[in-house]
């Protein structure tokens, strides 16, 4: 029974994650709001400079929602750059993504299903 080793592994993973998170913390990321409704997905600014970007998502709808930022993979916007799940109605959550210049799509997914309501996002190289 290597249960002690398992316990050590579990705690190890947790500490590792904690320290990893400390590493890229202290963000001075530019923050943009996203209002995610039942049928809408309003991104405060759809043309933003590259770098670390913080999206502050407010669920203005009546259903649970999640928001993704997709990058291009081939012809499709399917590469997840960042996401936040489980945003209850009336609550807000933020997430941070590191975006280089290019085209992206923001998807709000009311009910946490499907492809979501997509909004184009253009990231320009930071001057």
């Amino acid at each position: 029974m290597h249960i002690h080793r398992l316990l050590a592994t579990a705690v190890g993973i947790l500490l590792l994650t904690l320290s990893a998170c400390g590493g890229n913390g202290e963000s001075s990321a530019q923050s943009y709001g996203i209002k995610a409704g039942d049928t809408t997905c309003e991104v405060e600014d759809t043309s933003i400079p590259a770098g670390e970007v913080s999206f502050d998502v407010e669920n203005t709808g009546s259903d649970v929602t999640e928001v993704y930022v997709y990058g291009k993979e081939g012809d499709e916007f399917s590469k997840i750059m960042g996401e936040v799940e489980n945003i209850g109605p009336g609550t807000s959550q933020d997430f941070i993504v590191d975006l280089t210049a290019g085209d992206y799509e923001v998807a709000c997914k009311p009910g946490m299903v499907g492809d979501g309501i997509r909004t184009q996002l253009t990231v320009t190289s930071a001057g």
């Binding site: 994650t17 990893a20 998170c21 913390g25 202290e26 996401e83 941070i96 993504v97």
Partner: peptide, 26 residues
């Protein structure tokens, strides 16, 4: 994560969830 400027990258969060889940199954 909620009250300070600390954050966890999306990938780290998913990797954590994945590894913990598989460990839990074991």
């Amino acid at each position: 994560l909620s009250f300070t400027s600390q954050h966890m990258s999306f990938q780290a969060q998913e990797a954590f969830g994945g590894v913990m889940s598989i460990l839990a199954v074991g």
